[in-house]
Design a protein around this nucleic acid. Sequence first.
DNA 1: GTACAGGTTTACGTTAACGTTAATTACAAT
DNA 2: ATTGTAATTAACGTTAACGTAAACCTGTAC
Lengths: 135, 135
Amino acid sequence: MNNYDDETTFAIGELAREFDITPRSIRFYEEQGLMSPSRTGQNRVYLNKDRVRLKLILRGKRLGFSLAEVKTLFDMYDSNPNSAVQLEAMLEMTEQKRAVLRQQLEDIQMLMTELDDVEARCREELAELKRGKIA
Amino acid sequence: MNNYDDETTFAIGELAREFDITPRSIRFYEEQGLMSPSRTGQNRVYLNKDRVRLKLILRGKRLGFSLAEVKTLFDMYDSNPNSAVQLEAMLEMTEQKRAVLRQQLEDIQMLMTELDDVEARCREELAELKRGKIA
DNA sequence: GTACAGGTTTACGTTAACGTTAATTACAAT
DNA sequence: ATTGTAATTAACGTTAACGTAAACCTGTAC
């Protein structure tokens, strides 16, 4: 499913709806050099490869990369695909991201136990209130 | 370790160094109502409770909370803990946050496996490059 | 033919979380 | 007395990722 051939075209609004973003965002990504759709007259026309690019941009964002970082990856891939240099740069970026995620996991665990404490104290005080020990 | 008594005081620069942020940031947090250190003359003086607050702010940030959200949590925590209404509101709030954290945990785990995939493909291609299968 | 639903460019506005001077104060050491 | 280090307030500057008009074209529906 979700498999288009190389002829199928999309208007900017279609892609916007599909990925639940605004046309403005898509134009912005183009302005930042992340996409370059063709045109019919003055209207942008997107092929499936452009659609895939957009998907990659959004996935990069979900992974916490900035648009500039995504562009860096695109540029590297476009200029020298499958080069050892590009692949190693990619590995480095993923490793950095992994470190951030590890830190977040740790933080979440600490926060959760703190929430446990707060909750326990709340329940205790509530129980005392109901027993009438405090007005 | 890292255990200070309630008398120990800190200058703004000390805290900045300890948490690897700038004094400007600490003043900004105060300006946003997240801290209120005492003073000697016109200089800010931080006690351990302030230091703990700062730690919590930074942890919240790492978790993706805005300063405004952190402030909301602080306000709730600080507000009168003697009323049953307040306590129940607090419980509701912590339960909501807990749900958010659970979701984040899930997201992070998915992202990590995605990174695993990317990394695995990279290493594989690198290995092929080294075996000379690709020019 | 006119309304309308899309598309277009240009350009200024917005928000968060600080950065960056500037001008001043205060204590500590040389 | 001067130099150095750390602190202060006030206020304007910055970045990312768009939002939001304004003013325009353009093909289809009625």
